[in-house]
Design a protein around this nucleic acid. Structure first.
Lengths: 165, 165
DNA sequence: GTACCTGCAAAGCCTTTGCCGTACT
DNA sequence: AGTACGGCAAAGGCTTTGCAGGTAC
């Protein structure tokens, strides 16, 4: 079966090798933000005939083609996730206690950034935002899921962060 | 003469060596966001008896003491700037054409982030924000300096960015 | 058939560290 | 005087790359 990422690769005219197919599948099935090492582990589990150099080369290629996005959550390793084609881009909130990454997007926030850039005489091309927070200990049961104005959120899999390098 | 950073070091009980004094002075006089290599160059110009290992050790030490802050504008190198004691923390807008870094702060933006974190059930501990923009080509002379709600801005020295690693 | 891909191992870049003589409080 | 610091060079972690053989289109 053809994975979502593989389809994108084909659409963009990339030569599909066995290794790339496996890596594409791993990426398609990853809901979190794996680093290269982790991608390599997952890919090698499906097909041991894959070297980490190929993983590096492939994520780089896919990033250049706009299929993947590179993230830097600190810790000196790059992390990857599929470019979000449906909704606009989102950002990340990292739980400083568990390292868990929560995705969110917020329309009002985007507007504020546009305004800031405009005020400085710039057109906003892109931006990077990460929040670091601590889970609130509510006296009453948490208000989780009560999403407000234009917001969406989803929790991702593996913990981020490995502190400094 | 005792530089601002040196004073902070003494206040926090750091042992002041000749090398540290020089590095402290370089940092005090730097209005931009130099990387270690650049700090080393500037320090070595004042006193050649300084090794880059010492620069690395010193910036790390000062960061741990809260005197310096480490920045990551991409390009794989850490950049440093003195912790801002006067106003609250600021953020950076990077001109994608020149690499110039512009600092700004914005009260409304801070409030929005607090609200986002709260909505997700978190207390906001810290955050990281960088804008990447392109200078607007105004039909009329730009509205530079017309700072809106709670905003302040200042241009810094050396270009950032060296693209990927 | 040709241009591109892969594995392997070596190299590169930024940063840290062990060792030992030196300097600060 | 004792503890911490600095220089040097080696090592470490992540990523890229040269080379030789293999593979997709």
């Amino acid at each position: 079966m053809e994975s979502r990422i593989e389809r994108l690769c084909v659409e963009r005219g990339l030569k599909m090798t066995g290794q790339r197919r496996v890596i594409a599948r791993v990426l398609s099935e990853s809901a979190d933000h794996p680093d290269v090492e982790e991608l390599y582990r997952r890919a090698a589990a499906l097909d041991p005939r894959i070297s980490i150099a190929t993983v590096y080369r492939t994520v780089r290629l896919l990033e250049e083609r706009g299929i993947l996005e590179r993230r830097d959550f600190g810790g000196g390793r790059a992390r990857y996730e599929a470019t979000d084609t449906e909704q606009g881009h989102h950002h990340h909130l990292i739980d400083i206690e568990t390292g868990r990454v929560i995705e969110f997007s917020d329309a009002e926030h985007e507007r504020v950034l546009q305004a800031i850039a405009a005020r400085l005489g710039f057109d906003l091309v892109s931006h990077r935002l990460e929040l670091f927070g601590r889970r609130r200990q509510p006296s009453r049961p948490a208000t989780r899921g009560a999403s407000a104005a234009g917001g969406e959120a989803g929790v991702s899999g593996t913990p981020a962060n490995g502190q400094r390098r």
